[in-house]
Amino acid sequence: MLLITCPCCGVSGEETEFAPGGEAHLKRFGPGSEEGEFAGYLFYRKNPKGPHFERWRHAYGCGKWFHVARDTVTLEIFGAYKATETAPPQEILDRIAARGKA
């Protein structure tokens, strides 16, 4: 069972308190984009066996969206950061690198 700490309200809880929202840091493609860009935006998700950056919502708490760095094999959570960040913070990348999983 995943234990997540919400970076918005600071409350820790297990995964039933949160709702998963898929891959983080997607670039949205709008009107005028190529077919391939639409397909990529809509359907082609990163599916790594290892560290994964993803969106979660504190559904039964403060209700805010945020980001989580999680390993899809060990289920280790490397940390959570706010939805306003456009890339994972260095501190979390360092933690992942320390595990030998750059």
Binding site: A19, P20, P48, E54, R70, T72, V73
Partner: peptide, 8 residues
């Protein structure tokens, strides 16, 4: 199924 990507 779980709602998040998972290889376990």
């Amino acid at each position: 199924a779980d709602g998040f990507n998972n290889y376990t």
